[in-house]
Amino acid sequence: MSATIVARRPGMPRSLWLGLTLLILLVWSFSGLEIDGGRVAALPKTMARMFGLFFPPDVEYGRQSVVPAILESIQIAWFGTLVGAALSLPLGLLASANLFPRATRLVKPLLAAVRAVPELLLAIYFVPVVGLGAFAGTLAIGLHSIGTLGKLTADVVESMDQRPIEAVAASGGGALSVLRFAVLPQVLPEIVALWLFRFEISLRASAVLGVVGAGGIGGVLLNTLRYREFARAGAVVVLTVIVVLAIDAVSGSIRERLVRE
């Protein structure tokens, strides 16, 4: 620790450059965005007024329209993640350099490409194919999940203890036996924990898919705000926060239990 302090050079030309770059970027960004002091100064008041209008939230609307839409978001996230997880497991194993040194060179870039396209953009392509609604969103979440989970699965498999593989092979086990006894028992708890973690992220993603018509709560928020029904928008925000917090808490505690040996 003390070494880093001793090693810090006097003068710091590097941080000077960094500061200058930041300043130029900032000025350039500001000049492009028609942001004037007046709007910034008015911001606290504007926000306070809007959040004030959120309360009290429209409970009746919440019960009738918001809850079903949030449930739909959960359904999209759950089913999409599950399908993505199921498909990502074989692909993730194939992408593991230690198990499949040849296949990995093909599968890894494939997963990276899938992962690089955000769910919303995927949904834009699925909507014309299967129509507006939750199914399009589910496909988008599922496809994106394959990309992220496949990569994370490969990471886990590549960092596990490799040595039992040889032991199972030395007992005369084939590839499936190696998978069953040397690979899966070591990695499955971590991988299932990743699936749950991905579900938490998918839920946030599915909450916004509605803005392109792919189902869930996002479309409801967009419409209530468009028609400036702030008490209804308040119901959306409050319920979404509560549900996401609750699901995060449950999922997080299950994940913790899973990876404890």
Partner: peptide, 14 residues
């Protein structure tokens, strides 16, 4: 041919 290893090579979670 049964093999025994220096580092045991058992699966700790099984």
């Amino acid at each position: 041919a049964g093999m025994i290893f220096q580092d045991y090579r058992i699966v700790r979670r099984l």
